[in-house]
Design a protein around this nucleic acid. Structure first.
Length: 271
DNA sequence: CGCATTGTTTCCTA
DNA sequence: TTAGGAAACAATGC
C-alpha cells in the first residue's frame, strides 16, 4: 500500500530517472477515469521538477502541475514509447525523446489531476510529518480538543499528510498507545512518544524503500520492479496472531474507525 | 460470495 | 456551527 515512504521512494527514483528537463508531448488514458481532467489542457511543455506532498506525487511543468495519487495499486514504469502497452496499464505520459512514463494500476483507483495552482490544490492537506514544523508541541495542538480516537485521526490526511494503515499501526505500537485512545486524553509523555513513533516508523520505511507485502502484482513495487524491504521490519501491521517483539504477548486485530488495527494488548492498553 | 483495501464525499446526529 | 461517525463509492483479487 503506497503511503508516505512508498511514495517518497517512487518520487526519489523518478527524480533520478532523467525525465526532468524532458518535454511532455501528450498524456493518454486507456482507462478514462484515471486521467481526471480534460487532457487537451495539457499542452506540450517541459517537466521542471518532481516532488511529494503527503501521498501525492507532484510533477511540476512549465505551466502547471500534474498531481498523481497511487491509491492502492498504482505503479510506474519507464519504457520506450514504442514498447507495447503493459497489463493493467491505465495511462501514459509520452515524452519528446521517445521515452514514456507508464501508469499501471490493477484496481483502477489511482488518479491524475491537473492544476495551475499548487497551493489551492493542497488547501485542505495536513502537515508533513517529517518536516521541521512537525514538533511534539505542534502534535499536541493537533490532538487537543479532539474527541476522536487516535488511529482514525492519524489516518486523516487533513490533519497529518501521508500516514496510512501500515505506518499508523507501526507508530502506535512504537509509542505503546492503544488505537482507540481518545486523542485529547494523551499525556505529554505519550505525545512525545507518538511523535517519535510517527517519525521513526516513516524514516525506516523510507530507508528500506517501502513496504512490499507478499508477491502479488497489485503490490507496491519500485520503479525498476524490485521490492521494498520494509515488510521484514514490521512490528504491528498484519502481526495479529504472532507474538509482540517487545513482550511476547499475542498480538490482536480489531476494527477501529472502519479500518483494521493491529496492536499488542499488553503494551498498548486502553486504561 | 463477501471481504479487504484507499481516501473522498455525502449524509446524519449530537 | 461543527465535529465526528458511518456509509457509499470507485474496482478487483483472494
Amino acid at each position: 500500500m503506497p503511503e508516505l515512504p512508498e511514495v517518497d521512494t517512487i518520487v526519489e527514483e523518478l527524480k533520478h530517472s532523467s525525465l526532468i528537463g524532458k518535454t511532455l508531448v501528450g498524456v493518454k488514458a486507456y482507462w478514462p477515469k484515471t486521467v481526471a481532467f480534460d487532457s487537451t489542457k495539457l499542452k506540450p511543455q517541459k517537466l521542471m521538477n518532481i516532488s511529494r506532498r503527503g501521498k501525492w506525487i507532484v510533477l511540476q511543468f512549465e505551466h502547471g502541475f500534474l498531481f498523481i495519487h497511487l491509491r492502492m495499486t498504482g505503479k510506474f514504469k519507464i519504457l520506450p514509447t514504442s514498447d507495447p502497452i503493459l497489463d493493467h496499464e491505465r495511462a501514459v505520459l509520452n515524452f519528446k525523446n521517445g521515452t514514456s512514463l507508464r501508469f499501471i494500476d490493477t484496481r483502477k483507483f489511482g488518479r491524475f489531476y491537473w492544476s495551475e495552482d499548487q497551493t489551492l490544490f493542497f488547501e485542505n492537506i495536513g502537515i508533513e510529518p517529517l518536516s521541521e514544523e512537525f514538533t511534539p508541541t505542534l502534535l499536541k495542538k493537533l490532538l487537543m480538543k479532539r474527541n476522536r480516537k487516535i488511529k482514525p485521526l492519524l489516518l486523516d490526511q487533513s490533519v497529518i499528510a501521508g500516514i496510512g494503515n501500515i505506518y499508523a499501526d507501526e507508530a502506535l505500537w512504537e509509542a505503546k498507545i492503544h488505537p482507540e485512545r481518545v486523542a485529547s486524553s494523551l499525556l505529554e509523555k505519550e505525545i512525545i512518544s507518538l511523535h517519535k513513533g510517527i517519525q521513526s516508523s516513516l524514516r525506516i520505511g523510507i530507508a528500506l524503500k517501502g513496504t512490499t507485502l507478499g508477491k502479488g502484482k497489485s503490490n507496491f513495487y519500485r520503479l525498476d520492479g524490485s521490492e521494498g524491504k520494509h515488510a521484514t521490519n514490521l512490528k504491528a501491521y498484519q502481526k495479529s496472531g504472532s507474538r509482540c517483539s517487545r513482550c511476547s504477548t499475542v498480538m490482536v486485530k480489531k476494527t477501529v474507525g472502519q479500518r483494521s488495527s493491529h496492536f499488542c494488548p499488553h503494551c498498548q492498553r486502553l486504561f
